[in-house]
Amino acid sequence: MPPVSTASLSNTSRIGLWLLLAPILLWLSLLIILPHVDMILISLQERISSRNYSFSVSNYTEFFTEPLYWNTFVRTAVMSVIATALTLLIAFPVSYYIAKMLTGRLKTVLFVLCLIPFWVSELVRTYGWMIILRETGLVSTFLQWLGLADQPIEMLYNDAAIMVGLIYTSMLFMVVPLVSTLDSLDNSLIEAGYDLGGNSWNVLKEIVIPHAMPGIVSGCVVVFMLTLGNYLTPALLGGKDSLWFTEQIYTQFITRFNWEQGSAFGMLLLILSSLIVWVGLKLSKQSFSKVMS
């Protein structure tokens, strides 16, 4: 190999660096940063006449003065918090069972079983719940067969149905981080906890949960975000009265063609979602890049 002067080497590697930097900068600026900046700008506009806009915060004041918008927003946030908490409660014992009670082949099989539903489209999963919960569906028929109900019961189109769908859809994003953090907990620490006189509750509170905290936080953050931004599940399982905030955004953009109002709604949802992510990271003292990868 001919000797290369350091100057030209650093020159070629500099070109290499720019060649690698150019595409990512284009991607992030054109598809992520500028679109959001544009959305902020449009949300701060008011349409005076055709092709004539002026600066205004009226889209935001409209949000706070119109109870429907405000209530939908709060309702979406509260339902998402409840869905996240329930997902954690349901997923934790199962994740613990897979990570700590099982070994070898059975452990792998059960873990893979947890992943299977998520290789299938969310639409198909929600459709499955519609068939189970509808008036002529499985649960209703089963209850009649048991004699617990004397006529068909409609279980779709209410908050409980939305909740079931949201929890089901989010499960994977809770189970995977929980299993991987619980798996890394050394069994001898749990044994030591018992040896020192702790009961199951003490061990769970003092050893298992603190160790699993990174997994709990990253699971909760991802689940909350996905629930907040979900459109499909509330629309199909909740019917017309599901009052989910993403539906408001869709209505403003596609049905009413009021892009200014829609952009303001989009910004509000984005702020809420980022805020929750930020609070979650602060509470657990984790860094964003670590949780995400």
Binding site: P35, D38, M39, G229, T246, Y250, G266, L270, S274, M292
Partner: peptide, 16 residues
């Protein structure tokens, strides 16, 4: 992009 809800990502690209 992982923490931007899909609906908002879509809307912002539509607007831009």
């Amino acid at each position: 992009p992982l923490v931007i809800p899909g609906v908002i990502l879509g809307v912002s690209i539509l607007v831009f």
